[in-house]
Simulated scan of single mutants.
Amino acid sequence: MINVLFVCLGNICRSPMAEAVLRSKIEQRKLDNRIAVDSAGTGDWHIGKVPHEGTRRILDQYGISYKNMTARLVNSDDFDRFDYIICMDKSNGENVRKLPGGDKAELLFFMDLLPEEELREVPDPYFTGNFEQVYDLISAGCDVLLDRIASEKL
């Protein structure tokens, strides 16, 4: 089983959106018995809360489930549990790197999956309000990630 973890600041906007989108794409490709996905945040403000209203709205618009998703904090054990830890921006990546942990996980930045994009970080819609832009980036990046996993690991 390949395990993927998405990380953002509060785990209510970007990373749960990525978790839900990737999970949906995994199901569409019938890979749910081969790839698992989760999300976490580097800040503890929203632990236990459901995804942000804007994230829920855009996922509902595309018919993507976020059932049973609640915010949690990234932790040291995640380095041993996941094959990929994918951070939405540099600040999150720096915070993840500060955690003690194993070396199983490959740490990536989400926008490295989309090198043709000018943006080098996934904008935080908690502050920008642009959930559609974030959804478009995440959907495209998740396709690239799935192709990469399929060619390298499956």
Rank of each mutant, 00 (worst) to 15 (best):
Arg29Val: 01
Glu121Asp: 12
Leu146Phe: 06
Asn75Pro: 10
Leu114Arg: 07
Val134Ala: 12
Val74Cys: 05
Tyr66Gly: 07
Ile35Gly: 00
Cys142Glu: 05
Ala20Thr: 08
Gln133Glu: 13
Cys87Leu: 07
Asn3Arg: 15
Val96Asn: 01
Arg34Ala: 10
Gln28Lys: 15
Ala18Ile: 01
Asp44Val: 10
Phe82Met: 09
Asp124Gln: 04
Asp124Leu: 01
Glu53Ala: 14
Val134Asp: 00
Cys142Trp: 02
Leu59Trp: 02
Trp45Tyr: 15
Gly63Cys: 07
Leu154Val: 12
Glu132Asn: 15
Trp45Ser: 12
Asp143Phe: 06
Pro125Val: 07
Lys67Ser: 14
Phe79Pro: 02
Glu106Leu: 13
Cys13Phe: 02
Asn75Val: 08
Met69Pro: 00
Lys49Tyr: 14
Asp77Ile: 13
Ser65Cys: 08
Glu106Ile: 14
His52Gly: 03
Thr128Tyr: 09
Asn33Ser: 14
Cys87Arg: 02
Arg23Asn: 11
Tyr126His: 13
Thr42Asp: 04
Arg57Glu: 15
Val96Tyr: 02
Leu107Gly: 02
Lys104Pro: 07
Gly102Tyr: 11
Met88Val: 04
Ile149Asp: 03
Asp60Pro: 03
Asn130Arg: 11
Gly43Thr: 11
Tyr66His: 15
Tyr66Met: 08
Arg29Leu: 14
Arg14Ile: 05
Asn130Trp: 08
Leu137Lys: 05
Lys30Ala: 11
Leu107Val: 08
Ile86Ser: 04
Asn75Cys: 14
Gly93Gln: 11
Gln28His: 14
Tyr135Gln: 06
Val37Arg: 00
Arg72His: 07
Asn130Glu: 10
Val4Ser: 04
Gly10Val: 03
Val7Glu: 00
Pro100Ile: 06
Met69Phe: 07
Leu73Glu: 06
Pro51Cys: 12
Glu19Leu: 11
Glu118Ala: 14
His52Cys: 05
Asp83Lys: 10
Leu9Pro: 01
Asn130Ala: 08
Glu106Gly: 10
Ser39Ile: 05
Ala150His: 07
Leu145Gly: 04
Val96Leu: 08
Leu9Met: 14
Ile86Ala: 04
Met1Pro: 07
Asp80Arg: 10
Glu118Pro: 08
Phe127Met: 06
Lys153Trp: 07
Gly101Gln: 02
Cys8Ala: 10
Asp32Arg: 13
Asn68Phe: 11
Glu118Asn: 15
Phe109His: 09
Asp77Tyr: 13
Glu132Val: 15
Arg148Phe: 07
Ala105Glu: 03
Arg120Ser: 07
Ser24Tyr: 12
Leu5Ala: 05
Phe127Arg: 06
Phe79Gln: 07
Asp38Ser: 12
Leu137Cys: 09
Thr70Gly: 09
Asp143Val: 11
Gly63Ile: 08
Leu145Trp: 03
Asp32Ala: 14
